[in-house]
Design a binder for these strands. Structure first.
Length: 539
DNA sequence: ATCGGCTCGCGCAA
DNA sequence: TGCGCGAAGCCGAT
């Protein structure tokens, strides 16, 4: 199907939805199993062609940070082996952290273990997130069983549970993945402090970024333009094909007599808010966790949507986006794999592929850069650049034409039918179109009492409802919209100050807002006369 | 529909 | 110190 026909068919779908008010099935759900299996098979072949195992592969040492005094595995009588403490990157293949752990284990002829430890309460995770996450872990477990890797899951305080696992299993080396958020960084530091780091190497691997976060830049970057060259100039070095994680050679005595994991029991041990009706009444059906489901979505992007990405990515009535962010957030698929697959189409859809790479490489890595070098304030107003803090402060007392409570925002009950539609899309589907996210967050700034409250509400709603919430990308998205992070000053207005402004009118110009509103059913609540409440300030 | 002006501060050359 | 440049924007002219 050529692009124009495809757009036309989507417009038909939208108008049908408008007439019948029935749910339309997202066309990005892939039904063709055989073709997807082809992709999974072809990736397997590609890995096997790349190297026999990680030992035969040019592993980039810069992906690794050795945090302990001990730099190498020490000889020991009791061979508990190597532990990969998995947290952010929940997949077996295409995972530099697991590959590095297997490399250590093979080189030292040791067994290989994985531990995934879930805290009882984690950020704003709820049933929606846990269901997705656990589905992915089940797949990891199955793959580990086939590969002679000892996979374990536990619920509890990671800093305690991981140390306990290391001690009781006589682990000789620990590999963890990289997530530049406060909790995770603190757990890792705490584990490092509790173990004998003169004896046990403790190693962090950036399995999430293509160019490792600490290599891409050694400082807090100011904007996309300041990190772009730093990443692009090193990209060819790091954008390698993955070798396979292979069947592990060294047997693990822990595997014998191992109890089967009771996933319901895991879920029941978690403490999260179960009372939110918007979550309980809106089961997510378009996206299920796990690597193979993520690869299905990647394949449908490659086959159906990438061609539209260049020109239609800011049109929320057209399905032109990858829709991969939930799987990327939970680490069920790797961004590097997405780039490798999509770049095969570079000569065919040059503009689209370049735009996609800008988002999945530069913008994503910029988010990690922001959190890593701003670890105590990546979700606070203090984390904003000083010009933005100043201008927001100067305008914090400006009169707000509309003021909404968290509850009104949550249910999509504002005067703005477009905004309400975005909020409905968010709570019903667990995702919000990339362009609408910006508009959505900027209006929260406009309709709440202060920038602090706006940021708090936007982050809460995003983390609560979006499958890809609770992630550096989400934090930076809200910070960009509300407090100017990675952006620059613009013409001064009320409330916004110099923060970039967005409005209803602009959306009207850009896409068919009626189709979007019809699709999600946002209504106007208590609309006042004034529709555009700002006049540009004169100097 | 498309385009240029607006506006701002970092980064770099001087 | 001054200038060029980018920017997921808006707005008005054509």
């Amino acid at each position: 199907m050529i692009a124009n026909e495809y757009i036309a068919s989507q417009k038909r779908t939208n108008s049908e939805a408008f007439k019948t008010k029935t749910k339309t099935k997202d066309d990005s759900t892939v039904k063709d199993e055989t073709k997807t299996n082809d992709l999974i098979t072809s990736l397997k072949e590609k890995r096997n062609q790349t190297a026999k195992s990680i030992l035969d592969f040019d592993f980039k040492k810069k992906r690794v940070q050795i945090l302990s005094q001990a730099k190498e595995i020490k000889e020991s009588d009791s061979s508990g082996g190597i532990l990969y403490w998995m947290f952010r990157d929940c997949r077996v293949q295409d995972n530099w952290a697991l590959l590095f752990a297997q490399k250590l284990a093979l080189k030292n002829e040791l067994p290989l273990n994985i531990l995934f430890c879930l805290p009882q309460k984690y950020l704003e995770y709820n049933a929606r997130h846990y269901k997705f996450l656990i589905k992915g872990l089940e797949e990891v477990q199955e793959e580990c069983d086939e590969l002679n890797i000892n996979f374990n899951v536990c619920v509890g305080e990671p800093a305690i549970q991981v140390v306990d696992f290391i001690e009781s299993n006589h682990i000789q080396g620990v590999v963890c993945d990289f997530l530049p958020l406060k909790d995770c960084m603190q757990w890792q530091e705490s584990v490092l402090n509790q173990i004998d780091s003169n004896q046990i190497p403790f190693i962090r691997v950036d399995a999430h970024n293509i160019v490792p976060c600490w290599i891409a830049s050694d400082k807090l970057e100011y904007a996309a333009r300041t990190i772009r060259n730093k990443i692009n100039s090193q990209l060819s070095q790091y954008l390698q094909q993955y070798p396979p994680v292979i069947q592990h050679k060294y047997n693990n005595k822990n595997i014998i007599n191992k109890k089967k994991i009771d996933w319901n029991d895991v879920l029941n041990q978690l403490k999260y808010d179960k009372s939110d009706e918007l979550i309980n009444n809106n089961e997510i059906t378009w996206a299920e966790g796990g690597t193979s489901n993520g690869l299905k979505m990647l394949q449908s992007f490659q086959q159906k949507r990438i061609q539209l990405f260049g020109t239609k990515r800011n049109d929320p009535t057209i399905s032109a986006l990858s829709n991969l962010s939930p799987w990327l957030h939970f680490g069920h698929i790797s961004a590097q794999r997405c780039v490798l697959v999509i770049q095969e189409l570079k000569s065919k859809y040059t503009e689209s592929v370049n735009s996609y790479c800008e988002e999945v490489i530069i913008r994503r890595e910029l988010s990690d850069n922001f959190c890593y070098y701003n670890i105590n304030k990546y979700n606070k107003l203090d984390g904003a650049p000083s010009w933005a803090q100043l201008t927001l402060k100067q305008h914090s007392k400006d009169k707000r034409t509309y003021l909404y409570t968290l509850d009104e925002l949550q249910h999509g009950r504002t005067h703005d039918d477009l905004w309400n539609s975005a909020q409905i899309e968010l709570y019903k589907t667990g995702k919000l179109h990339g362009f609408m996210r910006m508009y959505w967050a900027k209006k929260v700034l406009e309709w709440t009492e202060s920038p602090e409250q706006a940021l708090q509400y936007a982050l809460y709603l995003n983390d609560q409802y979006a499958l890809d919430g609770n992630d550096p990308n989400g934090y930076v998205g809200c910070m960009w919209s509300i407090c100017g992070v990675h952006d620059q000053g613009w013409g001064e207005r009320e409330i916004f100050g110099k923060i970039r402004f967005m409005n209803y009118q602009g959306c009207k110009r850009k896409f068919d807002i009626k189709a979007y509103i019809a699709r999600w059913g946002g209504k106007e609540y208590n609309k006042k006369q004034e529709t555009i409440p700002f006049k540009k300030l004169k100097k």
